[in-house]
Design a protein around this nucleic acid. Structure first.
Length: 258
DNA sequence: ATGGCTTTAAAATAAAGA
C-alpha cells in the first residue's frame, strides 16, 4: 500500500512543528506540500531527513512554493514549472518519480478577484496544466496529480453555494477547466467515492468557519487510469485542521494497492 | 463584510490568500 497526501501548509516556517507532527503521526509515503512560502535556501530539508523523508522543492520569496516529500526515498525530479508562459515566475508546479509513481505537486492560482487578470491567469494556468497532464497520460504510467486546485468542483463540495457564488473557486469557467482535465482520462477519487459531497479540505480562518464547519473541497488528487485501478482508500486528516497554529487546509490523501 | 484571520516581508503597513 502507498499513501499519497496533499497538504497546503500555508507557510513552512510557521507550520514546521505541526508539519513534522503530522508526518510522524501519519507517515505518508509521499507528501505534496503547497504554499511553502519560502525561498529555496530556507527550506528545512534536514528536519525531514531526520524523519526519514527525502525531498525536492521549488520555492519563492514570500508566497507560493511547492515541495514533494517521500518516506525512505529520494524523489527524482522530472519537471518544475509548466510550459506555455516563460515570463511566469510563480512556483506552483513540481513533478517527480518516486515509489514507482509519477507524482505532480500542484498549486493552482486562486483567481480572485474575478473577473480580472488574476482570474484570467488561473484559467490559462489550468490549460497549461491540462497539456502537461495529457503528456503524462500518454506515458501510461501510474500517476497522481496532487494539490490545491482552488476549484470547488460541484455544488455539494461547499457548505454554502450562495456564500461562495461569486468566488473564483466555483465559477463555471473554473469548473469547466477542471472537468476538461477529468474528461481527458483523470479520476477524482473523492468525488467519485463520495457522490453526495460533504467532504471538506479547507476551512477559512475567518468568521468561525472551522467551528461552524463552513468548509469546502479544493484539494484534489487526480489519478491516471493505472493509478485509479489500484485505489483502495481516500481520506482527510480533519483533526489536524483543529489544532493550535494549524493551516487553513487539512491533509487530503489516497491509498493505492501494491 | 469591498474582509471578520493568518503568513510573509520587513519595520508600519501591504500583499496575498480563498
Amino acid at each position: 500500500m502507498l499513501r499519497i497526501a496533499s497538504y497546503n501548509i500555508n507557510g513552512i516556517k510557521a507550520r514546521l512543528p505541526r508539519l513534522l507532527e503530522w508526518l510522524e503521526e501519519t507517515r505518508p509515503h509521499v507528501a505534496c506540500l503547497q504554499e511553502i512560502k519560502t525561498q529555496d535556501e530556507g527550506f528545512p530539508a534536514s528536519e525531514f531527513e531526520k524523519l526519514g523523508y527525502g525531498a525536492i522543492w521549488h520555492g519563492q520569496k514570500g508566497f507560493n512554493g511547492v515541495a514533494i516529500l517521500a518516506r525512505d526515498a529520494q524523489p527524482v525530479e522530472v519537471q518544475r514549472g509548466l510550459e506555455g508562459e516563460p515570463e511566469d515566475e510563480h512556483s506552483r508546479y513540481l513533478e517527480a518519480d518516486v515509489h514507482g509513481l509519477r507524482v505532480a505537486c500542484i498549486y493552482l492560482p486562486n483567481g480572485n478577484p474575478q473577473p480580472g487578470p488574476k482570474f484570467d491567469y488561473k484559467l490559462r494556468w489550468m490549460e497549461r496544466l491540462r497539456k502537461r497532464a495529457a503528456q503524462i497520460l500518454a506515458e501510461e504510467v501510474p500517476a497522481v496529480l496532487a494539490g490545491d486546485y482552488n476549484v470547488i468542483p460541484r455544488d455539494n463540495d461547499v457548505y454554502s453555494v450562495r456564500a461562495m457564488a461569486s468566488d473564483a473557486l466555483m465559477q463555471p469557467e473554473s469548473r469547466a477547466g477542471y472537468r476538461r482535465i477529468l474528461a481527458d482520462g483523470w479520476t477524482d477519487p473523492i468525488g467519485t467515492l463520495r457522490p453526495g459531497g460533504g467532504v471538506w479540505t479547507y476551512w477559512d480562518y475567518q468568521a468561525g468557519a472551522w467551528q461552524r464547519d463552513h468548509g469546502f473541497r479544493i484539494d484534489h488528487l487526480l489519478l491516471s487510469p493505472a493509478a485509479a485501478d489500484r485505489l483502495s482508500a481516500i481520506g482527510v486528516d480533519k483533526d489536524h485542521r483543529g489544532r493550535e497554529k494549524a493551516s487553513d487546509h487539512a491533509p487530503t490523501w489516497v491509498e493505492l494497492r501494491g
